[in-house]
Amino acid sequence: MSISIHKVEKIARLAKLSFSQKEKENFTDQFNQILTFMEKLNELDTETVEPTTHVLDLQNAMRGDTSKTGLSQDEALDNAPRSKSGFFSVPKVLDKQ
């Protein structure tokens, strides 16, 4: 599997990032290097190995159902580029017309 420059452009678009042509070519190369490196793993036979979703052998990490006060509204909205009347304000979402 290899990554084309179109794929890089698509990923950039999804992440809402824009790059110069040179950067895109650079990323294409780097992505492909990473994939080649990962291909190495496919040489291992994992037929008899259980799939692992966690690196720690832990289970049932839970908390009791008690509530406590979190952030204030001002704190919550502090990092938001735009806010209005206590809400986060984001570019209009076309939901249902």
Binding site: A76, R82, K84, S85, G86, F87, F88, S89, V90, P91, K92, V93, D95
Partner: peptide, 18 residues
Amino acid sequence: KSMHAEAYVGTDETLVDV
């Protein structure tokens, strides 16, 4: 919760309550 239609929401925005 996203707010689209209410009067206090501007035409170019969506308001979000987390």
